[in-house]
Every structure is written in structure tokens, then in C-alpha cells.
Design a protein around this nucleic acid. Structure first.
Ligand SMILES: [Mn+2]
Ligand SMILES: [Mn+2]
Ligand SMILES: [Mn+2]
Ligand SMILES: [Mn+2]
Lengths: 218, 218
DNA sequence: CGTAATTTTTAGTCTTGTCTAAAAATATAT
DNA sequence: ATATATTTTTAGACAAGACTAAAAATTACG
């Protein structure tokens, strides 16, 4: 069984991976309002348990195992928030702190019964999608890279149909699904994108940008 | 704010004070499945906070302050149990462990809203009275079935602690909380009770009679 | 490039809540 | 009443999870 603290770290990791390219020790410390040294200690523990990929000084990312745990906590959090608003009459702005505690209650059956009681809601009171019990979560905003403007970010989720060769190209460039992309600059005269992936600057033609799918957070 | 552990100790103290006159270090250790030395440590801390009266080697008792905290935890415990049974469809015997966690969620407003949502119930699914928010709790005229003599009557209000399996048995026999019981005959040689419930004759072993709680009118 | 600034990790401390082993106090029984 | 048994407390250890201060690695800049 994972501790409350471990669960909060994994959840933080999940949210930070959405918003920023690299998840740094300091960003976690900021997010959780803790000191970076405390974060380092916990990262070691989570790496030991194979919940994250962690290399000293190199930042960190969730493993599949870790992501599933994070999603199960987020599922609980959002179901409880829904309960608090729909059934107990709380305002949408009051429920987060309480759900922060309720999300750690241990009982598979409890959360499935709660889900059914609430009528298997798809979204929480803040409009965020509720992951299902297998950790599947609706992709909120799937966009093409070409739709992004300079400084916007996204996570690579796939390519458009009939463009398998693009996958090969990405592979060769060491770009994988799940990698974060940040638009650095868009060249005006031919629509070329300069982007940053894994701290490397890459150049994508307009055609590539028209076929590369991203998940964004707006 | 008190820790989960402190709250569990205070609740244990409250329950033990009901059943026994003096609350010994060992009885608390037994109840909470901990070592007596750990209990001593915690008793010092609770005494420091003025939640208990404690003198080395002399046993302990709750102060008014401590009793109020214990009752507020018991209130939460029983309201959550009621929620789990009434709204989420859990059985009597499944809810205690989950409520053991839920009772520690911190939010005054949460518990008041839950109380209203449930229609301000007076009793939990085990027939135990729910304290109000001022820590007032109904004192029941409760007896064990084994204390009744032939021809006496009572209303089933619950079972003693740690006898969840008895609840299952009663369920199977279609015996519910609130049912009236009349003692028809007590077999002398093994203490078996023949009782009438809902116009049906049932046979209860002595052990069952030692664990079945009734409300009587004397 | 080389130095300065920043980030991250290490080393060591603290608190909470548990434990074991042993000592001290109290209770029981001859 | 004294010896024995039981209960309770003390002393010391440990794990989790936080912190501070300082060292080490990385990144940024002149
Ligand atoms: Mn939380
Ligand atoms: Mn939400
Ligand atoms: Mn509890
Ligand atoms: Mn109960």
C-alpha cells in the first residue's frame, strides 16, 4: 500500500508532466510547497518502487505503473468532488481541499460504488474528465501541431492516419509518443516550426506539423 | 489539529470506559493491537494535551475535552457508516473498516452536510446512536439477550463489537434491527434460548445471546 | 571558454509513532 | 509477609517524512 505522501507526489508528477516539458525537482517542490531536498528523498523512494524514471540531476517522469496510480488517485479525487457538489451541496470552489483528503481512502469497492451512486459521471465539477477504473482518461484537447502558436505546449499522442512514414521519421529523430513539445518559433515565410523536445531543438516542416497530433491543456 | 493516531486512541478510551471501569494500559494495547509501551508513550502525549487524566501506574480516563473529541470522531464514524449502507449499498458487516478511515477526514462543514443529506439519522446501521454535533449521545437502556429471563421482551438494537459474523447470520435468518424479541424458553443444560421474532420461533446458542444487544423497557 | 548563478543532491537533524528488552511498580498467592 | 507473577514504564532503536546547511553538478552568461 502506498502512503498518502507517495500518492500526492505521483499526482503532482502527473499534473506537472501535462504542463511542463521537463519535471524538475524544484517544480515539484514548488507545486507541493516543500523543500527540494525533501523532494529528492521521495524521488529516490518512488524510483526504487519503479513508479518513476529518475536519474540524478536529469529530471524525472512517471513509469506506466506510476501513471496508473496517479490516475487512480485523480479518479478518486474527481469522483469525491462530484459527490461533494452534486449530493452535499458544496460550491465548486470549496471541494478541492476536502477531496485532497478523501482521495486517499483505501477501498476499491468504495470508489466503484460511489461512481455508480453518482451515475458514472464523465466530468468533475471543474469540467475535468474523470479517469475510468482502468486509468483511461479522455484526451481533452487533441490538436495538430500546426494549430499551436509560439510558446504553446503539448504532448505527442500520435500522427494522422496514413502517415506511418512520419512515425519512422520521428523514431529516427528519437522523438516518442508522450514526449512534450514546446513551440519555440514559427518561421513566417514557409511555416516551419522550431520546437523543443527533450531539451533538443528540432525543425519540423509545415507538412509534418499538419500531421502530428498533440494533447494540450487548454 | 489532532493526528489520526491520537483520534483512534481517544475513541478507544471512550469505548473502553463504557465497558470497563478502569482503563488499563494493557486493555488499550489489546484494543488497538499495539504494544503497551507504545500506549504509555501516547498516554503521556494525550495527558500533555489535557485530553486524558493520567497518573503513572494508575490507569487513565478521558477529560471533558477528550471525551468531546472522541464523540466527534464517533459521530463521523457512524454517519459515514450510515452513508455507506444507505446510499452506496454496502452490507452492515463491510462498512466498519472503511469508516475507520473516513472518520479522520477534517471538515466541520463536510460532516454537517453529510448529516443533512442522510436526513439527520439517529442510529447507525449497527443500531448505535449517533452523537449530535455538541457531543450529546443517547444513552440506551441496552442489555444482552442473555440477561433476559423467560417471557421478557426487547428490541434488537445491535451486536457487541467484533461480532460482524453474527450480523451476517441474523441477516440470513431474516432478523433485522428493530425486530421485537420475546424469550419463550431457556434450556437449562446449555443455556440455549428459544425466542420468538416476527411470530417465528428461533433458537439461539448461549454465545449468540452473549453478543446480541437489545433495548428493554425497564 | 571559464566563471557565476542556479539547481539538485548529500549529510545530518527532528518529530511522530511504532517496536524490543529490561527495569520498576503493583498485584497475587502461598 | 514474602516471593512470584503481572502490569506498566523506561531506555534505546528504527522508519517515514519533513527540514537546514553545505557540497556538487548543471546551466547561463560575460
Ligand atoms: Mn491528497
Ligand atoms: Mn476538480
Ligand atoms: Mn480510525
Ligand atoms: Mn457502527
Amino acid at each position: 500500500m502506498n502512503s498518502q505522501s507517495e500518492e500526492d507526489y505521483l499526482k503532482a508528477l502527473y499534473h506537472l508532466e501535462m504542463d511542463f516539458d521537463a519535471v524538475s525537482t524544484n517544480s515539484i517542490a514548488d507545486y507541493l510547497d516543500m523543500k527540494p531536498s525533501s523532494v529528492t528523498d521521495m524521488l529516490k523512494k518512488l524510483a526504487e518502487k519503479k513508479f518513476i524514471n529518475y536519474e540524478k540531476y536529469k529530471g524525472t517522469s512517471l513509469t506506466k505503473k506510476g501513471r496508473l496510480i496517479a490516475l487512480s488517485i485523480i479518479r478518486k479525487h474527481r469522483l469525491w468532488e462530484t459527490f461533494l457538489v452534486e449530493k452535499l451541496g458544496f460550491g465548486w470552489d470549496q471541494v478541492h481541499i476536502i477531496a485532497e483528503q478523501l482521495e486517499h481512502i483505501k477501498s476499491e469497492e468504495l470508489i466503484e460504488n460511489l461512481d455508480n451512486f453518482l451515475g458514472n459521471p464523465k466530468y468533475d465539477p471543474h469540467g475535468d474528465p474523470i479517469p475510468n477504473k482502468d486509468g483511461e482518461i479522455e484526451k481533452m484537447n487533441q490538436k495538430l501541431l500546426v494549430e499551436l502558436k509560439a510558446s504553446q505546449k503539448g504532448i505527442i499522442t500520435g500522427v494522422k492516419k496514413g502517415t506511418a512514414s512520419l512515425l519512422n521519421y520521428l523514431d529516427k529523430e528519437k522523438v516518442k509518443l508522450g514526449d512534450s513539445v514546446k513551440v519555440i518559433e514559427i518561421l513566417e515565410f514557409d511555416g516551419t516550426y522550431i520546437v523543443e523536445i527533450n531539451k533538443r531543438k528540432l525543425t519540423f516542416s509545415e507538412k509534418i506539423c499538419q500531421n502530428l497530433l498533440l494533447e494540450t491543456n487548454d
